[in-house]
Design a protein around this nucleic acid. Structure first.
Length: 583
RNA sequence: GCGCCUGUAGCUCAGUGGAUCAGAGCAUCGGCCUCCGGAGCCGAGGGUCGGAGGUUCGAAUCCUCUCAGGCGCGCCA
């Protein structure tokens, strides 16, 4: 819908700007929703933004623009209001034509092409495989997958990626913890590692290893080998659990990138120690990355360690990548990882991190620049912390102490749909308090049900229509479950009342909402839109009888209902929430 | 101490590239089941947008300071 305004404005903007400034900045044409209905359907502050460069009064620019727009088929009226807003109101015939398009070709109507086929890679969750996912991870997972869906619907080619930190000390600590629990099965006094993971799941892992492992094989191993075997078993098991939880949560990844792989030196999986960096062909990603930076002159040695000069790119201090004991830091593999992603023909990278990693942003941005890429190639989105309460009392979250509430528990208690919706109705950068008791008790009046109910309700309207034979539904109607693909007789735009029109206009701006949400990387806008749409539909339903004796009116309203359902389904799908036909 | 994020209705939160409204849900109070699903609808009350300055014709929105909460500031991950 806003395209029609764009078209009109693009044609005339250069005329208005005149010869002295003939580079119409189309990207800067903003089209927005007026705050009040009385101000028309869509509005643009264009005249006001032009007034700065043209040094003219906004209202006079607006007048000139309005005079030049000549499209009576599309615009019912164009008004100048306030300091220089141009308000557009569409004609009924244009609205009805757009509604037809939405009904006949929903995909092409909804599809916008802000992405222009660009490859975009989103890395999210990436929790260490040392324990079950907790609620904070759930927030990142909800955001990441919704953003991924959103970008896919707006013309990007999206890859979802999970980075597995399977090479570091945390995994070793997991192994030591499980090993200790394993030994404790026979010897209760066996010491537990000081900073070990204390959760019950560690005990379970030990028991499981005990049950499933080959006894003869185990007894033939020395202690180091046994620890290695237990470590391997444990983190792989955790990874399986994580994948299972994510699946239940409706989150899928295209790539599971192992950190360990980045250290692989032509087929050997052992992590390389020592700071000697060779440049032979047969070398690990990590070493190649460091060599790359070295050649570019950003690496130096000091105090027996190898440093990356990130201060060249605005970081507070330089960062160590190989410690003086010869071990790589976590940062080293992260450099390699990002270099690897950049080499994969990705036009854009997005990382979704917990806010506790925000201090890490300058150094990773430095890496992008040091490798010769533009800084804005990578965008880090921060997800603020989730504070968990149970009946008003904060629950301490710590994997090490073993006291935390898992994503799995919450999904089991309140369901994946509610959990996702809960996360997606908040801006990612505001801290979130979740009271588990409240979330549970609210479940009957949860906003997600409100939206889903609108969808289910429409389905039952179709059933009613079919049952009463008020209109002839196409052949699809007979197929039973899920009437959303139903074929309907045409609608008659003359029958639209004010409420019909209001609802239809809300539907028609949906692509604009998607586009803006995609540009801002803010899926929560869809959540709010979908709630608003449901909040318009329910009252509409109560005041406007859909299935009636009047066949033409029935057909018209069924079409509107169908359009509402199409948009609701689409929006909910982006959010990763079910759109049930019955509840 | 320095840096990042956040302070909006009793609660949980939208709105924050100025103009064109301080809003939603929950909770509270009062109505609606001869009629397509009451997980719904209609209505009411409730906020000096943390505070103080500043810029402007105009600020929840921008600038400065301040108070409060969260999170960072390792040759940890």
């Amino acid at each position: 819908m806003e395209k029609s305004i764009f078209r009109s404005l693009i044609q005339i903007i250069s005329k208005v700007q005149g010869a002295e400034n003939n580079s119409p900045d189309i990207a800067k044409i903003e089209i927005e929703l007026p705050r009040q209905e009385a101000f028309g359907d869509l509005a643009t502050p264009l005249a006001m933004s032009l007034s700065k460069t043209l040094r003219r009064q906004p209202r006079s620019i607006a007048e000139e623009i309005v005079k030049l727009i000549d499209n009576k088929k599309v615009f019912e009226k164009i008004e100048i209001a306030g300091p220089g807003f141009i308000n557009f109101t569409f004609t009924r015939s244009f609205i009805s034509e757009r509604l037809s398009e939405l009904l006949k070709n929903p995909d092409s109507y909804i599809k916008t092409d802000v992405g222009q086929g660009k490859n975009i890679e989103i890395e999210f969750v990436s929790a260490n495989p040392t324990g079950p996912l907790h609620l904070g991870h759930g927030r990142g997972a909800a955001l990441g997958s919704a953003l991924s869906n959103l970008l896919r619907e707006t013309g990007y080619k999206v890859t979802n990626e999970y980075y597995i930190n399977d090479a570091g000390i945390q995994v070793r600590l997991l192994g030591m913890s499980v090993y200790a629990r394993y030994r404790q099965i026979d010897d209760k006094s066996y010491p537990f590692p000081k900073d070990g993971y204390k959760g019950d799941y560690i005990v379970e892992l030990a028991a499981e290893f005990c049950e499933t492992s080959n006894k003869d094989l185990v007894s033939s191993l020395n202690e180091d080998e046994l620890i290695a075997a237990i470590t391997d078993f444990s983190y792989k098991k955790m990874l399986v659990d994580i994948k299972t939880d994510l699946e239940s949560f409706g989150v899928a990844f295209d790539i599971w990138q192992s950190e360990k792989e980045l250290f692989k030196n032509c087929g050997t999986a052992t992590q390389q120690h020592g700071s000697t960096i060779d440049s032979s062909e047969c070398t690990s990603e990590v070493k190649r990355a460091i060599n790359d930076l070295k050649e570019r002159g950003y690496i130096y040695e000091q105090d027996g360690a190898l440093w990356f000069r990130s201060t060249d790119f605005g970081d507070d201090k330089d960062r160590v990548i190989v410690k003086n004991d010869g071990e790589f830091t976590y940062f080293a593999s992260d450099i390699a990882y990002h270099r690897h992603k950049l080499e994969q023909k990705n036009d854009e990278l997005i990382n979704i991190w917990g806010a506790d990693h925000h201090g890490y942003i300058p150094r990773i941005n430095s890496v992008i620049e040091a490798l010769g890429y533009p800084k804005d190639k990578l965008r880090v989105l921060l997800v603020q912390m989730v504070t968990l309460l149970r009946a008003g009392v904060p629950v301490q979250m710590s994997k090490r102490s073993g006291e935390f509430i898992t994503l799995r528990e919450v999904m089991d208690e309140i369901g994946p749909d509610t959990t996702r919706f809960l996360f997606l109705t908040r801006r990612p950068d505001s801290q979130l308090e979740v009271d588990i008791e409240v979330a549970k008790s609210q479940s009957q009046e949860n906003p997600v049900y409100y939206v889903q109910y609108a969808h289910a309700r429409i389905n039952s309207i179709f059933e009613k229509a079919k049952e009463t034979g008020a209109v002839e539904l196409g052949a699809d109607a007979a197929s039973g479950a899920g009437l959303h693909a139903v074929e309907l007789p045409d609608f008659n735009p003359e029958l639209f009342n004010d409420e019909d029109l209001k609802l239809i206009k809300k539907l028609l701006i949906y692509p604009m909402v998607l586009k803006n949400a995609a540009l801002a990387h803010e899926p929560h806008r869809i959540t709010f839109y979908v709630q608003e749409l449901a909040a318009m539909f329910h009252p509409y339903y109560h005041r406007n009888r859909v299935v009636s004796e009047n066949r033409e009116l029935t057909a018209t309203r069924l079409n509107i209902c169908k359009a509402v359902q199409i948009v609701l389904r689409h929006g909910l799908k982006i959010l990763g929430v079910n759109a049930p036909d019955r509840m």
